[in-house]
Amino acid sequence: MKTNVIDRSTVADPEADLAHEIRLRQKAREKRARLLKHAFLMLLSFVMLYPLLWLFASSLKPENEIFGDLGLWPSQFQWSNYTEGWNALPVSFTVFYANSAIVTVLSVIGNLLSCSFAAYAFARLTFNGRTFFFALMMMTMMLPYHVVLIPQYVLFLNLGWVDTYLPLIVPRFLAADGFFIFLMVQFFRQIPRELDEAAMIDGCSPFKIYWAIILPLSLPAMGTAAIFSLIWVWEDFLAPLIYLNDINSYTVPLALRLFVDQEGQSAFGQMFAMSVLSLVPVLLFFVAFQKLIIRGIATSGMK
């Protein structure tokens, strides 16, 4: 590289010199544009992250320092916001986290099982009415939850399920989230059909093919569905708000809201501390599975 440059400068060829000059200038211009872009994107990143950083900083600040203060560095770190906030309600947050964990884990299992079942039927099996049912499934994806909310409530009330976790969990075992079916159908269709056919000739049942071929080959899709359903169920507010009335069965979002109603006006630091903690599981999963999440959106167009 280096000798090349020296060679060129020693040869007196004005045309080559000019070409070289133009190339250099173009490179410099591109570099300037790139730096400018980075500067802008960094600024935008800061603006985007600022609310979250401020939330975290405020969760550690003494009460009188929180408001009107733009700073992100507390004068003293008040870790007691976390310990006191954890026990500020009549029921400890340990219970709320345990409740949320139960609901979330069971919901994710339900989603993965029931949606992959339906997706396998839609993508791999032939039966009368398949396209019809698939169209119906796509239509339910568009359906606003608020339209089915009231009859579902009446149904669950009559079943005696209100104030239990059943209205939150059972629908997940009945493949109520069309998005995940759609995501999995897209993925299953890409798996070579020869695999099924070979297995069928070997005498494998459809269930065996699903369990031993399709599922193991679809781990990325299952992972994406698991992470999204985990995050959505963890953050879900409306369904718990309607179905859970006993504070002992509250999930974390309901507990946060109760916190505001009961303590919020006097203990903002603690409220922010509990808010930060409620986001931690989502953040951890995002950092750990960023690639799966981002690819999942790009391919399926989920929210």
Binding site: F117, A118, A121, F122, L125, F127, M137, L174, P206
Partner: peptide
Amino acid sequence: AGYVFLSPW
């Protein structure tokens, strides 16, 4: 087979 797998949905 199709309807068995589809039944939860």
